[in-house]
Amino acid sequence: KELVSALYDYQEKSPREVTMKKGDILTLLNSTNKDWWKVEVNGRQGFVPAAYVKKL
């Protein structure tokens, strides 16, 4: 599985998104959309802005 690192804090703005803190390591589930990537963090799945994470 592919991992990404959070470059910035992000506070979810809808139920489809997830909150992350800078430095968090997230499991990348889907990166086909260039703007929003689906990740899993702390057992929750949702979307984060692609520009806020980088692949490890």
Score class of each variant (00 low, 15 high):
A51S: 14
K22A: 13
V53S: 00
Y10Q: 00
W37V: 08
D9I: 02
L29R: 03
Y52P: 02
N30H: 08
A51G: 13
L7G: 04
L28Y: 01
D35M: 12
N33W: 07
A51T: 11
N42I: 04
A51P: 08
Y10I: 01
N30Y: 07
P15H: 10
V53T: 04
Y52R: 07
V18T: 06
S5V: 15
A51Q: 12
K21L: 08
S31A: 13
P15W: 11
E2D: 11
S5L: 15
E40L: 07
Q45W: 08
K55D: 07
T27D: 05
K55L: 15
T32I: 09
K22W: 04
M20A: 02
T27N: 08
S31H: 09
T27E: 11
K34W: 07
N42D: 12
K55I: 15
Y8E: 11
K54I: 14
T32W: 10
L3T: 09
K1E: 11
Y10G: 00
L29C: 07
V4G: 14
G23Y: 06
V4H: 06
V18H: 03
K1Y: 15
N33H: 12
S5C: 15
T19V: 03
Y10D: 01
L26Y: 09
T32V: 11
P49L: 03
Q45H: 08
W36L: 04
E2K: 10
V4C: 14
L3D: 04
L56P: 06
N42C: 09
V4N: 02
E12F: 07
L26D: 00
N42V: 05
L29D: 01
V48K: 00
N33Q: 09
T27S: 09
N33D: 14
F47S: 03
V18A: 05
L28S: 01
L26T: 01
E2Q: 14
V4D: 02
S5A: 15
T32D: 15
K38D: 04
N30E: 15
E12M: 13
N33V: 05
I25E: 05
N42S: 09
M20E: 00
E17D: 05
E17W: 03
Q45S: 12
D35R: 12
G46L: 04
L28E: 01
D35C: 14
W37I: 05
K34S: 12
N42Q: 10
K1V: 14
G43A: 05
P15L: 10
K21T: 09
S14I: 05
P15V: 10
P49F: 03
V18G: 02
K21D: 04
V39G: 00
V18W: 04
S5G: 09
R44V: 10
T27H: 10
